[in-house]
């Protein structure tokens, strides 16, 4: 009788349990972050027609340029994906190469976005000029900030990979960064559709 009252459960959390716990936590975090984006999208949809006498999307957005920007972010995700495949095959240098390529492509995306923002502000179409511009800068800027933090995280992970090697902890962090990176892709597809395509076409 006594034995059945005691758990056969492992006295220690195995690494696998720990991984699963961390993954679930990160998924829930992503969900809460998605709520923030949902609110910013909703705000853009509510305020997006309030030009307050200023320029609208047709005057401001350059679709071919944005297509290039989009391609940078999407290929960055592909590169990261190759890095993760290499991790399954235990090829450390290939992982680093994948991460490095993903980092550079992501940095290119951020640079193009900053260039776009800079051009708009210099032309006198900064975020304080209308509800439309405010909601545009808030949504796209929040996404860009996320990408920038992702880049910082990626840099930290490359250093950890170099110093610590592909330990269990490093690999699990790389898996969560992977989730984050693809998540930002999906959000960007939404941004590109709702903010740019939909408004211009």
């Amino acid at each position: 009788m006594q034995n059945s009252m005691e758990s056969t459960y492992p006295a220690e959390w195995h690494e696998a349990d720990r991984l699963e716990i961390q993954m679930l936590g990160f998924w829930i975090y992503l969900m809460s972050d998605l709520v923030i984006f949902a609110i910013l999208f909703a705000t853009f949809i509510v305020l997006g027609q309030n030009y307050a006498g200023g320029p609208g999307p047709k005057q401001l957005f350059d679709l071919p340029y944005l297509f290039g920007e989009t391609m940078l972010l999407l290929t960055s995700s592909v590169a990261y994906g190759f890095g993760m495949v290499a991790m399954q095959q235990e090829k450390k240098n290939a992982v680093l190469a994948g991460l490095g390529a993903a980092f550079l492509l992501g940095a290119g995306f951020v640079a193009m976005e900053i260039h776009e923002f800079y051009g708009m502000i210099m032309a006198g179409h900064g975020p304080s000029h209308s509800g439309f511009l405010s909601s545009f800068f808030a949504l796209v800027g929040t996404h860009g900030t996320h990408v920038s933090f992702g880049l910082l995280w990626m840099a930290v992970m490359m250093i950890q990979l170099l110093i610590k090697g592909p330990t269990v902890v490093v690999r699990s962090r790389l898996m969560r960064l992977s989730l984050f990176w693809h998540f930002l892709d999906i959000v960007w597809v939404g941004v590109f559709t709702v903010v740019y395509l939909w408004q211009v076409l």
């Binding site: 030009y51 304080s128 439309f132 405010s134």
Partner: peptide, 10 residues
Amino acid sequence: MHFYTNDLGG
């Protein structure tokens, strides 16, 4: 910016 303002499209 103009999210909750009563002017310029808030």
